[in-house]
Design a protein around this nucleic acid. Structure first.
Lengths: 107, 107
DNA sequence: TTGTTAGTTGGCAAAATAACCAAATAGGTC
DNA sequence: GACCTATTTGGTTATTTTGCCAACTAACAA
């Protein structure tokens, strides 16, 4: 694998890695319904606000969300809505896994 | 966030996390073109075969690939082809990022 | 200017990942 | 059986990721 190809997959992996956490996945899903401020997400997730803020900055660094400060609050929104296509397929994988599990149990 | 919701996002995150590595992303891409044995993937990736094997077992545990032993070799193939939809959107994010970068530089 | 609220940043300890080597296993060949 | 080859598994070390707390900044209000 040449250097250029390697870099291509590293760049892709950075984006996917940014979503590879339950809280961040939840944020993406929630932001798909419209912008939210950090405090709203903190209330929904129930973690320390500094934790939520860091998760959001991971998504922001990956280019998945963007932020806008209005008054005291910072609102985040999805920058690339197609990111939602992920969920459909991930769900398919989970459904297939569930089927496999029950098939295994029956054996 | 109630326990059930939390578990839903944890399950999704496990699938996405399984793809969140350059080598594993490459494997998924490569397997989309047809099944490959471990040694073929090792040759393409250039890592130790034990490393490649462990990456494949991560994908397998997540339900993304399945394996079949034939003779001495073990062949892996995609179990859920829709996983490829990921790439299109990830690419969109990267393109948007590149635009943002050059816009920032111009400032 | 003092206080209050919303959010970010730095630092730290715990947990999870990654890559390699060595050893074990499994399928074949001689 | 002895001997390859392909792959998996166990163990170790290095690196990265997480989550919390405390300290800091920004916007606004009294």
């Amino acid at each position: 694998m040449d250097e250029r190809t390697k870099q291509k997959y590293e760049a892709r992996a950075r984006v996917i890695k940014a979503m590879a956490h339950p809280s961040r996945l939840f944020m993406v899903d929630e932001l798909s319904r419209g912008e939210r401020c950090v405090c709203e997400l903190r209330d929904m997730i129930g973690a320390d606000i500094s934790t939520v803020s860091k998760h959001l900055s991971v998504l922001k660094d990956a280019g998945i969300v963007e932020d806008e400060k209005r008054g005291l609050q910072v609102f985040y929104r999805l920058r690339v809505p197609c990111i939602l296509n992920f969920f459909g397929c991930v769900e398919d994988v989970l459904i297939a896994n569930a089927r496999r599990m029950s098939a295994t149990i029956r054996k």
